[in-house]
Every structure is written in C-alpha cells, then in structure tokens.
C-alpha cells in the first residue's frame, strides 16, 4: 500500500445525529449522536473489521458508507468520489463499486421473488445483460443452478446467505460490505459462510468491510480492526496488535468479557469470567453495568432509527428520503 494510493473508503470527520421525537409540545427534541467525528481510511484490498456492541453506531456508520444514509456533517469518499452530499438517486455508480451482504438471511431476500430475479436485481438496475451470469454466480457460491427457479423460503439460512453473496457479487463490485453476515447462522453453517466470504474476497480481489459484534469472528476474517463505542472509534489497529495488546480500556473490557472455549475447558468458571470483566469495567471508567447498558440502549435507538425501522428518529430519516426520492415518486 503506497502513500499515494487512493483509499477505497475514506471518512473525514463523519457525524450522524438523529432527533428524538418530542415528548412534549413545548420541549425541544433531544438529539442522539449516533456517530461522532469518525475519520478513517480503508485501503484497496484491505479486510477491515468494525467491532462494537449494540448501539455502538457501527450499523449507522455502515449505512453511510453504503450510501443508504447520509452524514449530518463530514465527508465520505468511495474510491476518491464523494458520496456524503449526494442523494441516493445520484449514487447509481456506487452500486457497481460497493455491494452489501446483510445480517438476516431471511429478511434480505424478497420472499416473493425467485432466486434468479433476486440475484439479477443489481444487474437489472444497472442495465447489465444477465447472460449466463446467474448460473455462474450460483456455482461460484457453491449452490446448484436449479436453485435459480426457487423461492427464498425453500433454502436454509446458510444457503440464503450464499444467495446474498451471489447477489452482491453480481455487478462485479470492488468493495464488499458485510453487516453481521454470520450472526444469525448456526455454528456448523457459520464456518461455511466465513470460508465463502474469505474465498470470494481473495478470488475477486475485493476490499472487505466486515461488521460484527463477535470479536472472534472479526479476528478470523480481518487484517485491521476498529473498535466502536457510543458512536466513536476508540481504537484502530492491526488484528494482531488489537487482540494481543489492546490499548484502549474499552477494547480490553470487550476482550476480557468474551468467554473462550479453551479457557473454559481449562477450568475457567463463570465467576472468574465475571471477575475479569468487572476488573476491566473498572479500568474503563464505567461505574457498573448500568452505565454500559444505558450507553448501549441510547445508541441502539439511534441504530434502529438509521435502519428506518419505525425507530425513534424516524422524522429525520423521512426528511432525507424526501430529497432522495421526491423526484420520482412524489
């Protein structure tokens, strides 16, 4: 990675705020700061992990990187081109560069569409002829080609996640963003999907942004990791640095609280795990669990809002969509 290379993803001072709905007629609505002043460069070919607990702002950040949400302030460039001040409709070019794999293997595939149509969606939207591409993609992700004419519900969670990967690969993107892609999967299937992601990232020379709450999964997949808490990135480092020698107290706390099979088999008890967690909590300045929880819940509301899921800051989101979509539909 040379100094002059254009980063695949570049964030500069990115902030995202949501307004909470007013609870009284006279009061001013509270503001939730979902992402605070995030600056980050992700180089082409890098496998970048984003770790945080629920409400850390990682989902909001990911939506902004994917052009599904816009920052309140700050700049986001994908391969040198700005996306922070563009409406969703003007980001068509972005879709050939960056694609997403979602968390929920059922919810991310339209139950009324056949697999063929689902995988063809990015092609149809870009006006790319599909040719034999659907079958090639299905084979690439380890599915048989007769899957094409079936519906999502006819597949298991792992198979659906393979289909999601095939869809993401359809427009030949340079960047793959994966949002908790294995957290809804069974252990035996999780390994298959992680191997698949590994394989396609290498095979297609992709830049990977991998978001997860599971530290060990991120450790397995990524070269470099950022830890988020309450909207801020508290620590960034290579996977080795971060896991072997965490600098920030919060990173230490996260690592301390993960139960590990090897330790447990060697006799580590729940009491010992809790003691280690409490010691780390004291180190990170949190008074007790309640502090941690309050922080997390606040952020979780912000994340829910960013998802547009009828969450608290819906007002703000709708405002954005107005500008984005008014031209076509309104």
């Amino acid at each position: 990675m040379s100094e002059t290379q254009t980063p695949a993803i570049s964030l500069r001072g990115v902030n995202r705020e949501f307004r909470r709905p007013r609870t009284s007629l006279t009061g001013t609505p509270a503001v939730v700061h979902a992402v605070r002043d995030v600056s980050l460069d992700i180089q082409p070919g890098e496998r970048f992990g984003l770790v945080g607990e629920s409400g850390s702002g990682k989902s909001t950040l990911l939506k902004m990187i994917s052009g599904l949400d816009r920052p309140t302030s700050g700049e986001i460039h994908i391969e040198g081109q700005p996306i922070h001040d563009r409406s969703v409709r003007k980001l068509r070019w972005l879709r050939r560069r960056l694609q997403l794999v979602f968390q929920d293997p059922m919810g991310s595939l339209d139950p009324r569409m056949r697999i063929r149509e689902i995988i063809a969606e990015p092609l149809a939207a870009q006006g790319i002829p599909r040719g034999d591409k659907i079958n090639e993609l299905l084979e690439r992700v380890g599915m048989s080609t007769d899957a094409a004419r079936r519906f999502p519900h006819q597949f298991s969670g792992g198979q659906r996640q393979r289909i999601s990967v095939a869809r993401a690969l359809a427009p030949d993107p340079h960047i793959l963003v994966a949002d908790e892609p294995v957290s809804a999967l069974d252990v035996s299937v999780r390994a298959q999907v992680l191997n698949l992601i590994d394989e396609v990232v290498d095979g297609f020379d992709l830049t990977l942004v991998f978001v997860s709450h599971d530290l060990s999964v991120v450790r397995h997949v990524c070269d470099r990791v950022a830890v988020m808490r309450a909207g801020e990135i508290v620590e960034v480092g290579t996977t080795e640095q971060l896991y072997e020698d965490p600098q920030h107290a919060y990173t230490q706390q996260l690592l301390a609280s993960v139960p590990r099979l090897s330790e447990a088999l060697a006799g580590a008890s729940a009491a010992q795990l809790a003691a280690r967690t409490r010691a780390a909590l004291a180190g990170s300045g949190a008074q007790d669990e309640a502090d941690v929880a309050a922080l997390a819940e606040e952020g979780a509301r912000a994340d829910a809002g960013a998802a547009g899921g009828g969450g608290v800051p819906a007002e703000d989101i709708r405002h954005d969509r107005h500008e984005d979509e008014g031209g076509t539909i309104g």
Partner: peptide, 27 residues
C-alpha cells in the same frame, strides 16, 4: 420498505418506483 431486501434493492441501484413495483406491490 423497512426490510433488508428493500435496502438490498437500493444498494442494487433501484429507484423508489422500481422498489414500489418489484417489492412493495407484490408483498
């Protein structure tokens, strides 16, 4: 429109009219 498949469709590059026709109406 709050499902991930609609988000996926936006990431695919579809505009609101296409999403309304392909995803919302059938569902």
């Amino acid at each position: 429109i709050n499902t991930e498949y609609v988000a996926a469709s936006r990431v695919a590059g579809h505009g609101p009219l296409a999403i309304a026709w392909k995803h919302v109406l059938p569902n």
